[in-house]
Amino acid sequence: MRWLQRNIRPEQIRELSLLLLIVVAVLFFGSLIDGYYTSRTFNRIAASVAIITVVAVGQTLVVLTRSIDLSVGSIAGCTAYFAGSMAAAHHDLPPLAVVLIAVALGAVMGAINGVLVAWGRVPSIIVTLGSLAIYRGILIDYSGAKTVTTDSLPAWIVDLPRLTFVTIGNLDIRAMFALAVAIVVLFQIGTSFLNVGRQFYAMGSNPDAAHLIGLPTRRIVFSAFLLSGALSGLAGFMFLARFGNITVEAARGLELQVVAAVVVGGVNIFGGSGTVFGAMLGAIMIGTLEQSLFRLQISEFWRDAILGLLILLAVASDAVILDRLRALWARTDLKLVTRAEAEP
């Protein structure tokens, strides 16, 4: 027990149990659906998970600092449309340029949120509730309610979803999924082994202390929103590649799925704890449910009801079980302290 407690934190148990739950869900659906264990199923789930994951990474950073970004769906919609119409108008635009346009536009929109929250001192829920409406409104006005169509896009974008990055056995890992995993790895490393990454945790864990000991609190919050915007921009591009047809309604409601992924993934809604990796697990859990229920056909309408229940369970288990575990861990720590005090 002592060994366990020294080397594993309660939060990690939380992630492990989610991983286990995903395995159980996959086994469960596998027993119900014929031909479930095929690379087609995998790719379907992976394609939907990839987009949610990329946005969820940014959302995790924001939630860690005790804020929330509800505008991610509108940002992804805007960037998908804008990048799409740019690519449609200029077929000779290099791929990297299109991606960079999407990311840059997303970053600008995120930066506006960030400035209002960090320097304007407006609560993030208000800022992003507002920008959710504003960005979507700008998109509708800008587009004149026209649609980007698959036909108008250059071939490389249309083919992108089927581009395979690497083949393991008979599983094709698509480039977009690989990109999402790469981003998770990058940010997981960044938030665990970079001092600027640790500051997100410090900020959300105790904002007053962060200010008093001289951490650049405003810059931390700003960069969380900036990164969330940029990653939503990237997700917008991925959305464009995946669906091709982009209406003004693109990615509407994405924020709900993303916040759900983050919460299910064990990121504390009040900041300070949780990991990027956990958020990805949350996204995988949601993606698996969504795609598998879709395959079960009869149950398509059950998806939201189950998702709602899942969020509730995730939060409830955090509150009830995680607190117990933490208390257990803390009591051991306390014993160490009292022993230390008795010694001198």
């Binding site: 929330i68 916040v259 759900a260 809604i269 309408f301 229940l309 939060v315 509150a319």
Partner: peptide
Amino acid sequence: VGLPSLAVTLAGLIGYRGI
């Protein structure tokens, strides 16, 4: 249970619509 209302009612937002 003492859960944050933001999370609970987010679950409700998705779940009740599902029902």
